[in-house]
Design a protein around this nucleic acid. Structure first.
Length: 303
DNA sequence: TGCCAGGCGGATT
DNA sequence: AATCCGCATGGC
């Protein structure tokens, strides 16, 4: 096992671990104490969080604040490289904020979650997570994804300081494993009407349709391309583009953002997803619009 | 109790 | 192309 530390002072614009992994962007991290989404934003409490990527286990906690704290990590692999990739530690967050609009809502959202970064999660786990997200609260989405990992994922033994004491983490299942599940099994895990969508999309990916292939396309073509997967419309496609494939201009139009448009940017409502998306993307700063969206989403959601 | 949650697929018009 | 409808399920 390797371990190390990253000084947050060295990251442009700081970092806050809790708001990054508990803001409904990623459902692939878990808290050792099991208290995801329970504690207040900016509390943190130096909780350990863990994930598994490509068979490598990684856990991390933040000691101190979003400007002068330290990220302590332990991993079966190169923890520093994994963290930098997964949590976008190389983004210039201060620069991104400078390129964001200055209205009251955006300012309040940035101030409420100082140091929150976007994530760069693996494509298949992100795709399935957001298929599960339809008409569902974030804590329950996290519960569904956790159940899928527990039932179909590969365990990685990793003893240490985690409060769960189990020392076994589960990676998100490979497409072939979920493709082999039955709709009834997934319904028993609480997926409801999303169960057949997950099975069918897993089959498509197992048969060679790679969601990551969208990364080579222009933004709107990439969004259209991802809707080929079952259970994936424009909104879920935007989530995959933003939280996995690095399209920072993507603005998922979910219920919270649609409310924000009604209340704060009524001129951006254009009647169709495509045109409303273009308008709010412009309003939110173009190539940093996805960052603005995620701050506003989390701010409104947790009020 | 009814309403809502990071919507989508399918049928109808 | 736009609109309507059905769909699971737990929390408030």
């Amino acid at each position: 096992m390797e371990s190390g530390a990253i000084r947050i002072e060295e990251l442009l614009g700081g970092f806050d671990l809790q708001s990054t992994v508990e803001s409904g962007q990623s459902y692939l991290w878990r808290r050792a104490d099991g208290r995801m989404y329970e504690s207040e934003p900016a509390y943190g409490g130096s909780a350990w969080y863990h994930t598994v990527v490509d068979g490598e286990a990684l856990r991390v906690r933040q000691v101190g604040g979003p400007r002068e704290g330290t990220l302590e990590w332990e991993s079966t692999g190169d923890g520093a490289a994994l963290l930098t990739d997964l949590l976008r530690l190389d983004d210039d967050l201060a620069g991104i904020r400078r390129r964001s609009p200055e209205d009251d809502l955006v300012r309040r959202a940035y101030d409420a979650f100082e140091g929150m970064r976007l994530v760069r999660d693996p494509p298949f786990g992100t795709l399935v997570s957001f298929i599960c997200s339809a008409q569902m609260r974030v804590a329950r989405i996290h519960g569904m994804v956790t159940a899928l990992a527990r039932e179909y994922g590969d365990p990685v033994g990793f003893a240490g300081p985690g409060d769960d004491g189990a020392g076994t983490y589960y990676g998100f299942p490979a497409p072939e494993r979920l493709a082999g599940a039955t709709e009834a099994e997934l319904r028993d895990l609480g997926l409801g009407y999303r169960a057949p969508y997950v099975v069918e999309t897993a089959r498509m990916v197992a048969d060679g349709e790679d969601p990551a292939a969208a990364a080579d396309l222009a933004y709107e073509d990439a969004r259209e391309h991802l809707t080929r997967f079952v259970g994936v419309g424009d909104k879920v496609a935007d989530c995959v583009l933003l939280f996995s494939l690095g399209f920072l201009e993507a603005v998922p139009l979910d219920t919270w953002i649609r409310t924000a448009i009604e209340d704060h940017y009524p001129g951006c409502e254009r009647g169709t997803y495509r045109e409303t998306s273009r308008a709010i993307r412009e309003q939110f700063g173009g190539d940093v619009a996805g960052y603005v969206q995620t701050y506003v989403f989390n701010y409104l959601r947790t009020r």
